[in-house]
Simulated scan of single mutants.
Amino acid sequence: MSAPSPLIDVAELAAALDAATPPALLDVRWALGGPPGAEEYAAGHLPGAHYLDLDRELASPPGAGGRHPLPDTEVLAAALRRAGVRADRPVVVYDAGPATSAARAWWLLRWAGHRDVRVLDGGLAAWTAAGRPLDFTTPQDGGGDFVPEPGALPTVDAAGAAELARTGLLLDARAGERYRGEVEPVDPRAGHIPGAVSAPTTENLAADGRFRPAAELAERFAALGVKDSTEVAVYCGSGVTAAHELLALTVAGHPGAALYPGSWSEWSADPANPAETGA
């Protein structure tokens, strides 16, 4: 029997929210340099959703480990308990639409040991397009009991990423122009980790903003060199959009790939690390 999809559609989520025991629903809207997600949440969110702050609760402060290091376990635990996350209760996460920050929350919960986490495919945009209602009230805090146990999903550090670029497959989930070093709007240097393969997350999505079907994603990743026998890791700018790639890989039937949490923001800050440019 195949594993259940890590994605959930609007109709399925609406039915689940009407059940006697609905899933814990997490709003993790975030955009690099964009408006604060908390403001967007206050302007309308899915009924019963709790807001989680990616910068403060789903990451540690920026530093030597990059712009979005993995969060302190106690900080993460407190945020999840506030949002009603329990070990025996399914969790659904969503963002504004492309699933970039939702995938970060999905990956973190799975990495922390939660077994039942799904992402709303298409996010808030799909929900509202289907004519579903929004809420403007904040649900009561508390009720969660989930205790994170980090390590359930694999990670690599800078040395591990460099090694996989030589011996396995290292995917760069950033936009192609950043991979090629044509632009670098955020991090210290332009380019990519030597040997990495460009795999922009935008190519995981169909024109409607939802993920492409599993078979199409499997074809995409096969063309990039992903095989069942290949050890794979993914990086991006700071470990956020890389989670989107890992979500797509899971949909495609390759759930074992690792995340490089520090990603390019960590790698490029160390002058000892080489950088390649071009295709």
Results as ranks from 00 to 15, higher is better:
56 R>H: 14
57 E>M: 03
59 A>H: 09
59 A>F: 12
62 P>C: 05
64 A>D: 14
64 A>T: 14
65 G>R: 07
67 R>C: 03
68 H>N: 02
68 H>S: 02
69 P>R: 00
69 P>I: 06
73 T>L: 10
75 V>F: 08
75 V>M: 03
77 A>N: 02
78 A>Q: 15
79 A>S: 13
81 R>C: 10
81 R>A: 15
83 A>M: 03
85 V>H: 11
87 A>N: 11
88 D>W: 12
90 P>V: 01
90 P>K: 08
92 V>F: 10
92 V>A: 04
95 D>R: 05
100 T>Q: 14
101 S>I: 09
105 A>H: 08
105 A>P: 13
108 L>S: 05
110 R>T: 04
116 D>Q: 15
116 D>V: 09
117 V>A: 07
119 V>T: 14
124 L>M: 11
128 T>Y: 11
130 A>E: 15
131 G>K: 02
131 G>T: 01
132 R>S: 12
137 T>P: 00
137 T>W: 05
139 P>F: 11
141 D>P: 06
142 G>D: 03
143 G>K: 06
144 G>Y: 09
148 P>E: 00
150 P>M: 02
150 P>Y: 04
150 P>D: 00
151 G>N: 00
152 A>C: 15
155 T>K: 00
161 A>K: 00
161 A>Y: 06
162 A>Y: 07
165 A>L: 00
166 R>V: 08
166 R>Y: 05
168 G>S: 01
169 L>D: 10
170 L>R: 00
172 D>W: 08
172 D>Y: 11
